[in-house]
Design a protein around this nucleic acid. Structure first.
Lengths: 202, 202
DNA sequence: GCAGGAGCTGACCGATCGGTCAAGTACCGT
DNA sequence: ACGGTACTTGACCGATCGGTCAGCTCCTGC
């Protein structure tokens, strides 16, 4: 047993590299980010990136895999849930996912269509598509598809590109959560003023 | 004067190259698209791209310049308009711009934050930011900023990534225009039920 | 003390990047 | 027929890409 018991474990290089990759992939784009950039940003040599993660695609998978798993869990929960309050629960789950994994979400939502040949991105695209179809199947398709696309893509855009809109320091996560909950609810939940037939349950 | 008056002018290579570049930049991403891809897609040699447009950046400028000019015109019109119906006019202008230049808009809105070092993208980002600030200045800032970001980013995302949501052939532009007008109006116009920004408790 | 494995690095590889250049082709007014 | 101009191309350039590999330093179990 070592005499000193370090409260904070030593920082692992693989974690630093994964985090640097996540930030670079989200802000610069996966295709436009070189392994050299990731290594420089984390303070290591490029070879070390390929030592811990065998390839650029594996690095991407390590960076956004957890977020995609969580997104797939949200999808399964929605498909299995009762039709009465699926929508409300969906909005809450999606808002949490967006805020907790905003960088990863930006990658596999906004860059997803450009990277469909990457296996893990293909998985994410399939999940997004299944959720969109499930949401759109409940009512008139075109309107729902558009609302869903704007809500998902818009929120993903806002959370990472939103710093472009103001030079003030960004709002706290709780503030963001509240407003996002409100706005996405307006977009996805059958509001009182919209769609004359307020069919809350079928 | 030429004896034959050809009804359809001869197809110009520069136009074909510009159009191919627009499509590739929008679907694959500017940084991830090589000049070789653009040339192959249009059926010419790579050298010919650099003959008509001296550099990759100049090609981008030729492809999205008109859309950015139009966006800046929308901004000026909004800044100069009377406060009474600026918002309503803005929604109409933005919807038209989105539909008429969806590929270019996808590039300078969604890829904008990643490409701010490219001069023309920097111009576009500045215009987006000025519009966001003008819109957000009228009421409580955070809520308005978020609504604006979701509306703009979401619509740009939907129009080009939306084909990921369905394998049916895409809806007509008129259908799209109608629904977009409705949804963006809900997001940006002060609706009757909504003015209180009391975030619904979780 | 020491063998051995994990962590890390620089040198190097073929491929591709954006961009340059000289030569070839096609078409024009004269 | 001819000179010139616009157009198009393949060969080529240095830089950088993702990825491989041999070798270095450290730490640890014995």
């Amino acid at each position: 047993m070592p005499p000193e018991t370090p409260v904070s474990l030593r920082v692992r290089a693989s974690d630093e590299l994964r985090q640097a990759a996540l930030e670079q992939f989200a802000t610069v784009g996966f295709a436009a980010t070189s392994l050299q950039q990731v290594a420089d940003h984390a303070g290591y040599a490029k070879s070390n990136v390929l030592y811990h993660y065998g390839s650029k695609e594996a690095l991407l998978e390590a960076a956004i895999g957890p977020a995609i798993n969580e997104f797939e869990a949200v999808l399964e929960q929605y498909l299995a849930g009762p039709a009465s309050d699926r929508r409300t629960a969906l909005v809450g789950s999606v808002v949490d996912l967006l805020i907790d994994h905003r960088l990863a979400v930006h990658i596999f939502i906004l860059q997803g269509p450009s990277l469909s040949e990457v296996p893990i991105i293909g998985r994410a695209n399939a999940a997004v598509r299944r959720l969109a179809e499930a949401v759109g199947r409940e009512r008139e398709s075109l309107d729902e598809h558009i609302r869903f696309g704007i809500a998902l893509g818009g929120a993903a855009y806002l959370l990472t590109a939103g710093r472009l809109f103001t030079d003030d320091e960004p709002p706290s996560d709780d503030e963001l959560r509240g407003v996002l909950h409100q706005v996405l609810g307006e977009l996805l939940l059958p509001a009182a003023g919209r769609t004359s037939t307020t069919t809350t349950t079928d």
